[in-house]
Design a protein around this nucleic acid. Structure first.
Lengths: 218, 218
DNA sequence: TGTACATCAGTGAACGCGCGTTCACTGATGTAC
DNA sequence: TGTACATCAGTGAACGCGCGTTCACTGATGTAC
């Protein structure tokens, strides 16, 4: 199979956009996301991302030092959208704290299902949040939104049995993440489960909150 | 940098092993595991695994159709060892059901920490358990061991509040997996957490079991 | 408003490299008689 | 116990390919005057 781009840069892309691309950096992040979604976590190369964005193979080097730097930016964009989704779920009008927490849980699962490429770049690509300040900031923002929702739920409990806030948020995060990664993901790695992932998470959270004493027993 | 194997097949390896390798299949799985551990989930090639096993680049094709088939075997071997670890934890002498469940949880975390390469091949490489009967069997064996431990704990509860066995096992699995994947893993993807992963899991399970009513409240 | 110039963000050719895969081959092993 | 032969599990050379990266370059844009 010979390599032959469907449409060379001189055709459509260049005609439309001129010599300068405008926002190549973002276009490359999106191309990488699409390639990861299509061919799995290890299925993308800088060269192919450049092709998909309609630029020459050397163009990406104006924006990214190497392939790793591009993955970091994919993870960063993923965390930004992820945090935005959690924020939107949380701030929907007239929700009780418990409803808002559940909404965040559903947003977590929805993100894993609809954006498996971001999900794997964020959590499974070996990229540590520590390698980039922006990445860390967005990852922290996501976690803090979850922690805020947990606090609101915990605040409904009598003071003497209020759980350690950080612990509760970490537990809820792990639970959401485990269900998303095993049963909720939108790619081939998804496992069969007795219930839909959403129900699984909601029931687990309910049991957990009862265990904390912030939800009435039975 | 020229390609030059430190020790060519004609030197040490071949001298020791003769023309036939003996167990090349297993040696290649182990080489792949080592390469994944060293360079991340996308960091291995058939050619390099062959080199590491001390055979020619064409030798792997006697045992594996392609690179994917090799990853599947890595995942299979991983689930076998994982299930063995859960079994060992469960069957340690004179444990209460609750202690046995905790021991399995610790075994889960220990596996994620000590064998990040197996962990990522099993859960994060896009390999679905459905692609291979042996893989599915070993994955099911692991889950069933967890389910058995959950059943034993649930059996200690009064009959009227005994939780659905499958649901409870799925919840515990997701919780263990979430903590392992986020805070317990043995590679660069590990995140900071307020508590050691083992404590995090033990406390979450305790809260969950209290919520189910199989552990006394306070 | 116009022009000169610096800077930015692309091009495209070139390179060396290692990978995946195929092929005819050959050494080692097991087995039938 | 010995020999012939089939089968298994390797070899090693060869190939085409796409990747990563570099380089001198050039078109487009913004700005100082």
């Amino acid at each position: 199979m010979r390599y032959m781009p469907v449409m060379s840069p001189s055709d459509r892309n260049r005609a439309k956009r001129g010599y300068h691309h405008g926002n190549l950096r973002a276009a490359l992040v999106d191309a990488a996301r699409a390639l990861i979604a299509e061919k799995g976590p290890m299925g993308f190369t800088i060269a192919e991302a450049a092709r998909l964005a309609g630029v020459s193979p050397s163009a990406p080097y104006r924006h990214f030092k190497d392939r790793d730097a591009l993955i970091v930016d994919v993870a960063k964009e993923g965390f930004t959208r992820f945090a935005d989704a959690l924020e939107a779920a949380w701030s929907a009008p007239s929700l009780t704290p418990l409803q808002a927490l559940d909404a965040q849980g559903r947003a977590y699962l929805q993100f894993a299902k609809e954006e498996p490429a971001f999900f794997s770049a964020m959590f499974e690509s070996g990229v540590s949040p520590g390698v980039d300040p922006d990445l860390r900031r967005e990852a922290d923002r996501a976690f803090n939104l979850l922690a805020r929702a947990c606090d609101a739920v915990a605040a409904g409990a009598p003071p003497e049995r209020r759980p350690p806030a950080l612990m509760m948020a970490t537990h809820i995060w792990a639970l959401s993440h485990g269900i998303a990664a095993l049963f909720g993901r939108g790619d081939d790695g998804r496992r069969a489960s007795p219930l839909p992932a959403e129900d699984l998470l909601e029931s687990a959270v309910a049991v957990y909150l009862r265990g904390l004493g912030v939800l009435p027993t039975d």
